[in-house]
Amino acid sequence: MANKYVTEEAKKQIGKAGEARTIEVERGAIRRFAEAIGDPNPLFNNEAEARRTRFGGMIAPPTFCRSLSAAIPDVKLDMGESFRGLDGGSDWEYFEPIRPGDRITVQTKIADLRESTGRLGTMVFITTETSYTNQFGQLCALQRSTAIRY
């Protein structure tokens, strides 16, 4: 059966990348994020204590990356204006710590477009992949997230 929204034409948007953005990580932003999520881990809050660890200083909590967002490429689907959106979830991989003062380059691309028909009617799953790379060219984190439109 042919897809209703994720047509062969629409699938050409897979691979489309948004503009990359480079953001400097502020120590205060890491602390505020840790406070907002209620995580008292000294690695994310206390420079003096974090210096005594193998990291040699404060690092960002795993999902801090979400505050470093880049443009999400626009996905055009013939769903009209009245669709609703849901956050389906995320898969993260972590390779290197993110530290205060790092300059992180963030870029998001469309990794997959799928649809299925269920309880809520036809649902479209838009998977984006976001890379977080530091000033040394090291990939710090990869995030794959799925947004649902229905």
């Binding site: 995580d39 881990n41 690695l43 660890t53 193998r54 990291f55 909590p61 795993p62 999902t63 389906g88 979830g89 995320s90 898969d91 993260w92 991989e93 972590y94």
Partner: peptide
């Protein structure tokens, strides 16, 4: 990250 401790490392995390 609490489970891993300061000498551990969270390598992957998935949520649905």
């Amino acid at each position: 990250t609490d489970f891993a401790g300061e000498r551990g490392w969270l390598r992957k995390l998935s949520v649905q």
